[in-house]
């Protein structure tokens, strides 16, 4: 059997694991849907601008972020339960195993965020469907990058689950604070030094949220250059994550534990 096929089978298995965790699904969906359908719609009537169009992309990106970060939880579980040793005995290279996890993380997050986007599309014009569809591959790469961050955190946390969740919260606060996911760039410019303003502008989460706002919700024509920026900003995360996770597996093979 080809390596690509085994990688896809392992990725599909991990992908299904995300959706089998029913409590997680319930928490994420209740939070994201209440944000989209209650907060965004109610606040929209209290604001002087279209708050729905501003806030719902943030919820979608937040959903993508949370679902991607769950890759780390699954890796941590695999390390804790010894499943990772079972996977290291399967007919796939160690690099292939790393790729499978990142693919699964990217795919799970994409399906989850895509579902939120589909719900939002109910009240958007039909033309938004096409631009949403075009954004999906870029969101997938972003999700893989975020899964890479999660893999790095899981590798650092080793079998200490509490460390992983603490690291995840620190990363979440940092990466969202230094972004324009929840507030406009003007607010960032007024409150942060120029260097951090640049970080917020180039943050792949900011770019993705902005792309959804502009192209799907506002109906602006798609600029390939802008989408390419999402790729350029996301790929390093995926690479660092892959290297960190591969390093963790090597350490496991050499030391017998992390």
């Amino acid at each position: 059997m080809s390596q690509a096929r085994v990688i896809l089978l392992i990725a599909r298995n991990d992908f299904s694991y995300f959706f089998r965790t029913k409590w997680l699904m319930a928490v994420l969906l209740s939070l994201n849907l209440s944000d989209m359908l209650v907060v965004a719609l109610v606040y929209n009537r209290m604001m002087t601008f279209n708050y729905f169009s501003y806030y719902v992309p943030a919820v979608i990106i937040m959903g993508l972020f949370a679902a991607s970060m769950d890759t780390g939880r699954r890796i941590w579980l695999a390390l804790r339960e010894g499943v990772i040793q079972y996977e290291l005995s399967l007919p796939v290279s160690t690099q292939g195993l790393v790729i499978a996890y990142l693919l699964a993380g990217g795919a799970a997050a994409l399906v989850y965020a895509g579902s939120l986007m589909a719900i939002a599309l109910i009240i958007l014009p039909a033309s938004a469907i096409w631009s949403a569809f075009l954004l999906l591959p870029f969101l997938f790469v972003l999700a893989m990058g975020l899964a890479g961050i999660a893999a790095t955190l899981a590798a650092i946390a080793s079998t200490h689950g509490e460390f992983f969740f603490a690291f995840q919260n620190v990363v979440q606060v940092t990466i969202l604070a230094l972004s324009t996911v929840y507030y406009p760039i003007e607010i960032v410019r007024n409150s942060l030094p120029p260097l951090l303003v640049t970080v917020a502008e180039e943050n792949p989460l900011s770019l993705a949220a902005e792309a959804i706002r502009q192209y799907t919700f506002a109906g602006a024509p798609i600029e390939i250059g802008f989408l390419a920026k999402i790729l350029v900003a996301s790929i390093p995360f995926a690479i660092v994550g892959a290297v960190a996770y591969f390093g963790a597996l090597r350490k496991l093979q050499i030391n017998g534990k992390l």
């Binding site: 089998r20 010894g82 005995s89 796939v92």
Partner: peptide, 22 residues
Amino acid sequence: QSTRVRQIMGITFQESRGFWRH
């Protein structure tokens, strides 16, 4: 050549290794 070895080998671990929700 670990990948090639994995293609012809199967292992039963001392402690069961399974996906919890499968």
